[in-house]
Amino acid sequence: MKIGTRTLKTAIGTPIAISIAQVLGLANFVSAGILTILCIQPSRKRSVMSAWHRFLACVVAALFSMVFFELFGYHPIVIGIMLAFFIPVTVLLKVTPGIATSSVIILNLYSAEYISFTFLTEQFLIIIIGIGTALLLNLYMPSMENQLKQKQDELEHNFQIILNEIALYIRNKNENWDGKELRICEEVLQDAMDLVLLDKENHLLRNEHPYRDYFQMRGKQLELLERMLPLVSKLPNRDAISLKIARFFENLGDNVHPGNTASFYLDELEELRRTFDREKLPETQEEFETRANLFRLLHDIEDYLLLKKKFKKSDMTDKKTTQKRPE
């Protein structure tokens, strides 16, 4: 069983907040621990926003409590009436995440049956201790670099399988592949983008993220691969061009990598096109449809490579003398 960082922070912060409130001799000191539990967030940005929302909601709750309880009495019905007005105000102020936190303060003031300046000051100290403890703990966020790199490796591994399975199908019309890697890639991309968003929120002054563009690029490439599959299934069996295209897919599949050598493969693709153009004109409808499918397939492969070329500057210093490197 794995204990997450957020769980550890909650386990550490709750007794710290309660102890501080207890040492200061505050009434309802346990409420400080409750506020800490409610305020622990998965990112720095959410933590700061949560602290502000909850603090403002608690201030509004204290004001509402003084007005309603002192004017209409300390009765359960008054709590219901007050909440009917209080909640819309939090929505108007856009601090609805603070409703649960402020409810703790409301119930503390209700249970006291008398709101004095001293007791109100103690409640604000509890708010500061509870929210402040959570905010301080949330300043520490573990790096997600390893998780993002793992997602990158997993994605590229499945890209390799997809490209090699396409090549295998072109060569042998092998229909044993169930295409599960396509679904796996979609899931990995979704998980990766969630991690990117969370990691971005942990850097308050960062507007961009080094992995975001990469995973977006791979997502568009995956869409192109899915679009290529029906075209591949219509290629003729083992003619010269089909075998060259199969070899091209094998080269791509064997060399999937975060680096960029798309220019090399674009040159190779251009050579394929020239070979394609030198073929005699189609004489039957079947040959014409095959030629059209080949043309569309080469166009999609080009788009696939151009996405990588636009994403990152070429790693090829000399295309004519450098050997093939990872795509």
Rank of each mutant, 00 (worst) to 15 (best):
Leu205Val: 07
Lys308Ile: 01
Ile34Gly: 02
Lys234Ser: 15
Thr36Leu: 11
Leu307Asp: 08
Glu268Lys: 12
Phe276Gly: 10
Met82Ala: 04
Ile131Lys: 05
Arg54Tyr: 03
Asp239Tyr: 04
Glu145Tyr: 12
Asp318Lys: 03
Glu223Asp: 10
Leu243Phe: 09
Asn28Lys: 10
Phe117Thr: 13
Ser242Arg: 06
Gln285His: 09
Cys58Arg: 00
Val196Ser: 12
Gln150Ile: 04
Lys234Gln: 15
Glu186Gln: 11
Leu243Ala: 13
Arg206Phe: 07
Ile301Met: 14
Thr118Gly: 11
Val30Thr: 09
Arg273Ser: 07
Lys200Gly: 10
Thr36Tyr: 06
Leu92Ile: 04
Leu120Ser: 09
Ile128Pro: 02
Gln216Ala: 13
Met1Thr: 04
Lys319Cys: 11
Ile40His: 07
Ile127His: 01
Asp153Gln: 15
Phe119Gly: 05
Asn164Pro: 08
Leu63Asn: 03
Glu156Arg: 12
Ala11Trp: 06
Lys173Asn: 12
Glu286Lys: 14
Phe55Ile: 10
Leu135Asn: 04
Arg325Cys: 09
Trp52Phe: 14
His257Val: 00
Glu187Arg: 11
Leu195Thr: 05
Tyr74Trp: 15
Lys45Val: 01
Cys58Ile: 03
Ile126His: 10
Pro236Gly: 09
Ala192Asp: 00
Thr10Met: 14
Ala62Glu: 04
Ile40Asn: 07
Arg44Asn: 09
Tyr114Gly: 07
Phe119Asp: 07
His157Glu: 14
Leu107Pro: 02
Asn174Pro: 02
Ile87Gly: 12
Asn207Ser: 06
Leu298Glu: 05
Lys151Val: 02
Met82Val: 00
Asn237His: 13
Leu136Arg: 05
Ile162Gly: 12
Met144Ile: 02
Pro210His: 05
Val104Gln: 02
Asp318Met: 02
Ile131Gly: 04
Lys173Arg: 12
Lys151Phe: 13
Met144Asn: 14
Glu287Leu: 08
Asp300Ser: 12
Phe72Glu: 03
Arg247Gly: 11
Phe117Arg: 07
Asp213Ser: 11
Gly98Arg: 02
Ile161Leu: 05
Tyr211Glu: 07
Cys58Glu: 10
Gln323Ala: 14
Lys200Thr: 07
Ile105Arg: 00
Val59Leu: 15
Gln323Asp: 13
Asp318Ala: 03
Val196Arg: 11
Lys200Pro: 08
Val256Leu: 01
Thr96Gln: 14
Glu287His: 03
Val95Lys: 02
Arg273Gly: 12
Tyr214Arg: 00
Asp153Trp: 07
Pro258Val: 01
Ala62Ser: 08
Glu154Met: 13
Val256Trp: 00
Phe117His: 11
Leu92His: 07
Arg291Asp: 11
Ala112Glu: 06
Leu243Met: 15
Val30Met: 14
Asn237Thr: 06
Ile126Pro: 05
Ser143Asp: 13
Glu70Gln: 15
Asp318His: 04
Arg291Lys: 15
Asp277Gln: 09
Ile20Asp: 08
Ile184Tyr: 05
Gly219Ser: 14
Glu201Arg: 08
Lys149Pro: 04
